[in-house]
Computed example of a mutant assay.
Amino acid sequence: MGQHQTNMSLDNTSRLGTQGPDELVPSRYAVMVGEIEVLVISDGVVTPPAESMATNADPAVRGAWLDDMFLSRDAFDWALNAVVVRSGGQTILIDSGLGVEVPDFPRAGHLVHRLEAAGIDLASVTDVVLTHMHFDHVGGLLVDGVKERLRPDLRVHVSAAEAKFWEAPDFSRTGMPPALAEVARSASKRFLKAYRGQLRTFEEEQEVAPGVVVARTGGHTPGHSVVRLTSGGDRLIFAGDALFPVSFDHPEWHNGFEHDPEEATRVRLRLMRELAETGAWLVSTHLPFPSVGRVAAAGDLYRWVPAWWDY
């Protein structure tokens, strides 16, 4: 993928490589995929219950894994990453973070502020791609005043299966607490009402911009999708919620937010196999920021190999 470009500009400004005065840690990381510009943006951190990472695991085994990773057995910090892509004159936002959907997660919901800090005007976004419509992926678009700042001709790409599912969602196979299920139901309903006129649905896959293809995987949600970037022999996959930190050690563990856990396991194994065979870069919503790395085969499993930060 060539060198990481830490001062890359998505909108011909010089602000992208600068650190905001109120940011204690980096919140964006830029890379090039051939000629495609990619910026990973941290929306912050959410802190779900630890059991949500492995609802079908033996509690003792899950606890041992958390101990080995120096993580709390009660709740753990889960990164929340979104991506901005520039290709063919289009500026594409992939997912939008939490917004203000869950007050119990006050350390997330920073996407709009961090886009601004990176010099990205909401009005410059031509396309939004949603990997799926859980509240921590659509919430940023529901923040008061955001829709009014977006272009009236904005295109919002989401799989047809995803849009259909959230018209009458079924949470019976998830491990979501009732309160969070209600947040998910409410957020998706408000999103569909606000953006229905701008939806551009697809069945299996759609090329959003040159070298930018969104493809439905299912599993996590019926219409969950990943985004594949290809340019000049370089590849990157934004995996959304198909892969979690625990997936490399225990791909068989069911995440509590998965609507079809068995299919979600099959999806992540296929995706890890593809990543290992192609050498593509991986970015995923909940891998630790900046979540740029590769996947390598490790016996019957796979291992995560984070990229060396390029300063």
Rank of each mutant, 00 (worst) to 15 (best):
residue 222 P to N: 11
residue 222 P to F: 12
residue 223 G to C: 03
residue 223 G to F: 11
residue 223 G to H: 04
residue 224 H to S: 15
residue 224 H to T: 09
residue 224 H to L: 07
residue 225 S to H: 11
residue 225 S to D: 11
residue 225 S to P: 05
residue 225 S to N: 10
residue 225 S to T: 12
residue 225 S to E: 10
residue 226 V to N: 11
residue 226 V to Q: 05
residue 226 V to H: 05
residue 227 V to N: 04
residue 227 V to S: 03
residue 228 R to T: 14
residue 228 R to Y: 06
residue 228 R to L: 12
residue 228 R to D: 14
residue 228 R to C: 05
residue 229 L to Y: 07
residue 229 L to K: 11
residue 229 L to W: 13
residue 230 T to K: 13
residue 230 T to N: 10
residue 230 T to W: 00
residue 230 T to P: 00
residue 230 T to V: 14
residue 230 T to E: 15
residue 230 T to F: 00
residue 230 T to C: 06
residue 231 S to I: 00
residue 232 G to Y: 08
residue 232 G to R: 06
residue 232 G to Q: 03
residue 232 G to P: 01
residue 232 G to A: 08
residue 233 G to E: 12
residue 233 G to K: 04
residue 233 G to Q: 09
residue 233 G to W: 11
residue 233 G to H: 13
residue 233 G to I: 12
residue 233 G to C: 06
residue 234 D to S: 15
residue 234 D to P: 00
residue 234 D to F: 05
residue 235 R to C: 12
residue 235 R to G: 13
residue 235 R to V: 00
residue 236 L to M: 14
residue 236 L to I: 02
residue 236 L to G: 08
residue 236 L to T: 05
residue 236 L to N: 04
residue 237 I to N: 10
residue 237 I to T: 15
residue 238 F to S: 12
residue 238 F to H: 14
residue 238 F to M: 07
residue 238 F to G: 05
residue 238 F to E: 08
residue 239 A to P: 02
residue 240 G to A: 15
residue 240 G to V: 07
residue 240 G to R: 08
residue 240 G to N: 10
residue 240 G to F: 06
residue 240 G to H: 15
residue 241 D to F: 11
residue 241 D to Q: 08
residue 241 D to S: 12
residue 241 D to A: 13
residue 242 A to M: 11
residue 242 A to T: 15
residue 242 A to E: 10
residue 243 L to K: 01
residue 243 L to T: 00
residue 243 L to D: 00
residue 243 L to F: 00
residue 243 L to I: 09
residue 243 L to M: 02
residue 244 F to A: 13
residue 244 F to P: 01
residue 244 F to S: 12
residue 244 F to H: 14
residue 244 F to G: 03
residue 244 F to I: 03
residue 244 F to C: 02
residue 245 P to V: 03
residue 245 P to D: 06
residue 245 P to W: 01
residue 246 V to F: 00
residue 246 V to W: 02
residue 246 V to D: 00
residue 246 V to A: 05
residue 246 V to N: 03
residue 247 S to E: 05
residue 247 S to T: 15
residue 248 F to G: 05
residue 248 F to P: 01
residue 248 F to Y: 14
residue 248 F to H: 03
residue 249 D to A: 13
residue 249 D to Q: 09
residue 249 D to M: 06
residue 250 H to T: 01
residue 250 H to G: 04
residue 250 H to N: 09
residue 250 H to E: 04
residue 250 H to F: 05
residue 250 H to S: 02
residue 251 P to F: 07
residue 251 P to L: 09
residue 251 P to Q: 09
residue 251 P to I: 05
residue 252 E to H: 12
residue 252 E to M: 08
residue 252 E to T: 08
residue 252 E to G: 12
residue 252 E to A: 09
residue 253 W to H: 14
residue 253 W to K: 07
residue 253 W to C: 13
residue 253 W to I: 09
residue 253 W to D: 04
residue 253 W to P: 13
residue 254 H to W: 15
residue 254 H to G: 03
residue 255 N to M: 14
residue 255 N to S: 10
residue 255 N to G: 14
residue 255 N to W: 07
residue 256 G to K: 03
residue 256 G to F: 01
residue 256 G to M: 04
residue 257 F to Q: 10
residue 257 F to Y: 13
residue 257 F to I: 02
residue 257 F to W: 15
residue 257 F to A: 15
residue 257 F to E: 08
residue 257 F to K: 05
residue 257 F to V: 08
residue 258 E to P: 00
residue 258 E to R: 03
residue 258 E to N: 11
residue 258 E to H: 08
residue 258 E to T: 09
residue 258 E to I: 00
residue 258 E to K: 02
